[in-house]
Amino acid sequence: MTKKFTIAFIAIFVLALLVALVGAAAPANPQEAARLNNIGVAYMNQQLFEKGLKAFEEAAAKDPNLKVTALNRGVALLNLQRVEEAKALLEKASKDDPNDPHAFYSLGLYYKNSSDPEAAVADFRRVTEIDPNDADTWYFLGSTYAQLKQFPEAISAFEHALKIDPLHASAQFGLARAYQQSGQADPAHEAMKKFQYITQNKLGSPISLAYGEQGKYSRAEESPVAAEKVLPQIPVKFVDVTKGAGLTSRPSVRPTKDGASFAGPGACFLDYDNDGNIDLFLPDDGTQGSMSLYHNLGNGKFEDVTKNRPCRKSRQSHPPSPQ
């Protein structure tokens, strides 16, 4: 009887100890949660939405009070096309932190791409109240008004976006379309001309549907991590070591025929012999008819090896073709 009682007592004690230990391990770890959240943000930036979502979920488990994880899970789910789950989390996030524009912005995007543009208008309006200076928000507000065929409101929102960012290509295009659809041919033509000027001269490019390219508030949010210790400031200065490094065989500035000085066309660091030290290549600058290759000796000095390593001129140097 006593023995049984003792065993039961010990068992209860051990159990209690275990509970205490587990309880001690469970307290929120804000530092680790913030770290995991930021890893999630990095995954999102690589378009790895599954991994991003997993990291945000782990972050939320480490610190249930980290508000940003609801938002970020919502953003990840939205990009994974799991829209209903995304909507629920984003709504929660917008209530948790009604002064953070992110959740409202993503909800706006969700509603704009579903059958409820009116709800999108309300969300984008809320973002403009929190931050009136974000051109993308005004653009999406205008674009949603255009969907609803409320063209005066659309035009006003697009103009607002363009006041903040005169090269906002999508807002400029939206403005032209809103004028077109409201029957104002001349301003439509003017606005479209401006849009084509902006895009053809690559002064601005329209908003794409890819993650991260729909405005700053569409992205997952990082959490601030307190630095563990502050490092002492190191003074930095730059010293000209050209001469000492043996890079003097070619002047970087030379006079041209009309007396003006002419700078070389650029330079390229590369490790052409895979010895772990970055070498230097100077292309033909058009005046001397030759290019130069300097070998990094690894001791702060370079050796001119142009003659030993014939760099044959096979074609005119030009920038690589865009993809």
């Binding site: 400029q172 295009f173 939206g174 479209m192 794409s208 549907l209």
Partner: peptide, 13 residues
Amino acid sequence: AVSAGVAFSEDGI
């Protein structure tokens, strides 16, 4: 296409 609205997406792409 431009004046009819089929040249680009509604975002201008």
